[in-house]
Structure formats: C-alpha cells, structure tokens
Design a protein around this nucleic acid. Structure first.
Length: 417
RNA sequence: GGAGGGAUGACAGAGUGGCCGAAUGUGCUCGCCUGCUAAGCGAGUAGGGGGUUUAUACCUCCUCGAGGGUUCAAAUCCCUCUCCCUCCGCCA
C-alpha cells in the first residue's frame, strides 16, 4: 500500500504513480477522500475527547452527583455515536482507493511500457535454432510427458521424468548452496496460505484471478514462495543491526495462468505448477538499492554459471506491476524462437509491502518501515527448458552444465535408442 | 474431531468495571560513583494516526492476540475468530 501522506505532500511521489499509467483522476479521488477523512477525524476526536473527560469525572465524583453526571455523559455519547459511522465510511473509502494505487516508480526507471525496457547489458553468444526445440527434446528423451499430464490434471500440467528430475534436484541444490554461501537462510515454506497472507503480501485483491483457491478450508495455493516468506516477519520490529535478513525459499508454485490461452503452449514454458527458488530480503530502508544490486548480481552469477546467454533489462515504469518501484529482468536467449525470453526477475518494493505487513526497524528518529525485495534465484522448470536447447548435442543427447555434474553424478544423458 | 487452560510493552510478568497506556523486574539510554571492568545510585524508556509549530515542544485520538458488542466508562464483562499449551481420540 502506498503512503497517502507522502502522496499529499510530495509531487515527486505522485509523479512516480502517474508514470505507471494509473487511471487519471484516481489519485485525485483518493486525495479528496483523504481530505474528507481528516476533517471527520478531527471532528470525531474532539467529541471523543469531551466524552472521555466527562466519563473520567464520574469516577471521581461523589455518589450523590453521579446520576446527574452520567446523564450528561450519555448525551455526549449519543452525539458521538451519530458522527462515528461517517468517519468509518470515509476511512473505508480511502483504503479502498489506496489499495488500487500502485507503488510509485523510482525516478531512475525508464518511461514507457512493455517494449520500453532498457537493455543494460548483454552477455554470451546467441546460437541459431537447435535440431529439436525444448518441447521436442523433452519428449524424445522421456523427460516430459504433457499428454499424460493433461489426462491426469488438464492442460498446462506435465510429468517431469527420468534424468530431468535428477537435473532439477541438482539445480536446486547448486542454487541453494550458493544462496547459503551468500548469507541467505534456506527455507521450505508452506504453499497453502490464508487470505490475509495473500492480502498482506500484496497479491489480493489485484491478482486474485491468478490464484488457486481451496474454499472448503479457506486456503490458497501460493504462486510464489514470496507470499509465505513475506509472512515470516509480519508485524516485526527489527533492531537496525539485524538487517538485512535474507531468505532463499524453495517451493512449488501454482498459477492459474488465466487469460493466457494459446500462449506458450509447447512444452513446459508456461505451466500451472512449477518449482522455484526465490530470494527474499528484508532491508534497512537506506540500503535497499544495494541489496537490489546484490540480488541481481546473484541472478547473473547463476544464469552465467550455467553458461546461458542472457541480457539484463531495466523494466519500464508501465510494465513494473503494482508493488515494484524498480525491477530488473534477466532474459535468456531461446534459440528455437530466436529471441530472449524472461527467466528471472528481481524487484525492489521499497516500503510498499512492508506497510501492510507492519514490518519496521528501530530508528532514533522514530521507527521506519523496512524495505522488501525479492528475486528469482532459479525458476527450475523454465531453466531446464533453456538447458534442453543450449546443451543439446548433435546426437540428440543432452550435456549437463559443468557446475551441476557434482550434483547429478553424470555429465551427459544419451539419446534413446 | 472432543474437553480444559492461556495470549498484556524489547523480554519476563502483575493487573476481574472508573486515579490503568498499564505495577514490578530484566534489557536499553543518559548521568553520578569507581585505576579499568563488574557492582551500586539517580533519571528516562511502548506503538500508531491527526492537529498546532521554523524547531524544541505541545494538544488529542486509537491500540493490552484480531474483530464485534454491553456500559457514561472495558486489559478487566459478553460473542465470534486466530494462535499457543495440556489431556483424550485418530493418523503418515
């Protein structure tokens, strides 16, 4: 949630919101509602102060004066009761409007939308298309069975099988051990969460349609371990020297992918269920930019360490999504399509998410909200698919990246005879 | 799933309708004292919103797990929910 006070006072803050292409007028509606709220607030507070004072008198009054004083206080109470609902209504409308407003884009973020991201750097050679695309290779080596997946569960579900499973586990282990070495605490979080957790993580109400629900138990399947990781410190007040706190969450992720019919239907590029290692950092508000750079560097180290050619994109304001103030994507070259496709991304949410979570840090000049950041360490299924194309051999087999061999125990999967 | 007990400030822990935003202890901050340290002595120390103010500061409201209710007045009484503990049942 945004900071309504800063919106009122800082033109720069407002400009950051406008750059995200919010409906014109929405900001003014919020500001108008906030004015109403504040005037009702001071009115109600004045009435309450009078009534509180009258009440306190009763406690001190002599027995024979009480009846009279109670009657007088009751009149004040009555007056207060008629005004309070108006305030409650005003507060609800401020909140409803505020929830629709995205986190302002940071000043450094490029203007524009989906196609206006700025490529910061490009690393590695981009090969031409391989004999088999990722889906065909996955099928030929017996790694992926989408047909049976569809029978069991519907479209966009697949069985991952054979050495691909060992490769997945190797990837997870390699990535996790790197994160642990970089000061991240490994976590396997719950993947079913309550509605409140979804709200506080910022996914409800905006992304509700993307989330699987279990109405019987009032639980929801997470689309990323970011959700349960954010709940790990809800309401906490940190000592300044306790930060940053870094977590590496490994979990299965579930996404309905509503509105993507016909998009990326080959193989396991876009599926309803996949595993992911996610970084989540609670940072001191003065040092979140450093953490963001650090997370990006780790992502590059992982993608680069696997030997995949990639580029880093500084995402434009209109394409940031509601909670991010700044976001970098790492896009990896997909040879069969002859273009870069998103593999990982990392965002700085600043205090946007922390405000709803109530996560703060002690500070001499009043406690401040912490900053939260997150980034993909490894989207496992999608990473496999890039490996299927880049490490495909001329005989139809698959080589294993050197860094993973210690974990798989084999360096190549031969073609099926 | 059934029965009972509990949730209070950074932490521990008192508090069963009014002078309680809350005793006391620990911790922390400042000062005194003391070769240093420790101990001792004194003072201070919850969070959030709104307002006045250049600022220091002041005024006010809300918050004792969460949300509702009773009352002139609620940490305290009532209802719902969440979590924790004990016992019983069931179970990988």
């Amino acid at each position: 949630m945004i900071d309504v006070k800063r919106l009122r006072e800082e033109p720069e803050y407002r400009r950051g919101i406008e750059r995200k292409r919010v409906r014109p007028g929405l900001i003014d509606e919020l500001l108008a509602a906030e004015e109403i709220r504040r005037s009702l607030l001071s009115e109600v507070e004045e009435l309450r102060a009078e009534q509180n004072a009258a009440s306190k008198e009763i406690g001190r009054a002599a027995a024979d004066e009480r009846a009279e004083r109670i009657a007088a206080a009751a009149v004040l109470k009555e007056r207060l009761t008629t005004r309070e609902p108006h305030l409650a209504e005003a507060e609800a409308s401020v909140r409803a409007l505020a929830l629709q407003i995205p986190n302002p884009a940071s000043p450094e973020v490029p203007d524009g939308g989906e196609d206006d991201g700025v490529v910061l750097r490009t690393v590695g050679e981009t090969p031409g298309p391989p004999p088999l695309d990722h889906a065909a290779l996955g099928e030929s080596l017996g790694f992926v069975d989408s047909d049976r997946g569809a029978e069991a569960s519907g479209s966009r579900f697949a069985y991952l099988m054979g050495e691909a499973v060992l490769l997945e586990l190797a990837l997870v282990q390699w990535v996790m051990s790197q994160l642990a070495a970089d000061g991240f605490t490994p976590v396997i979080p719950p993947v079913l969460v309550r509605e409140q957790t979804m709200e506080e993580a910022g996914f409800f109400p905006t992304d509700r349609s993307q989330v699987y629900a279990l109405p019987e138990d009032e639980l929801f399947l997470v689309g990323t371990s970011e959700v349960p990781l954010s709940a790990l410190h809800r309401g906490d007040l940190f000592d300044a020297d306790a930060l940053p706190l870094r977590y590496g969450g490994y979990s299965t992720c579930f996404r309905r992918e509503a509105g993507t019919y016909g998009k990326d239907t080959r193989g396991i590029f876009r599926v309803h269920q996949f595993d992911k290692v996610e970084m989540f950092v609670w940072a001191h508000p003065d040092r979140s930019n450093e953490e963001h750079e650090r997370i990006l560097a780790i992502e590059e180290k992982i993608v680069g360490g696997l030997g995949l050619p990639y580029r880093v994109v500084d995402i434009a304001a209109g394409d940031l999504g509601a909670p991010a103030a700044r976001k970098f994507d790492i896009e990896v070259w997909l040879p069969s399509e002859g273009r870069y496709r998103e593999l990982t991304s990392c965002s700085n949410y600043l205090d946007y998410s922390a405000r709803r979570l109530g996560a703060r840090v002690k500070d001499d000049s009043g406690n401040r909200l912490v900053h939260t950041l997150n980034g993909t360490a490894c989207a496992v299924g999608r990473t496999l698919l890039f490996l299927f194309e880049h490490f495909q051999e001329s005989d139809g087999g698959l080589a294993i990246p050197d860094v993973l061999v210690p974990y798989t125990g084999f360096s190549k999967v031969g073609p099926r005879s």
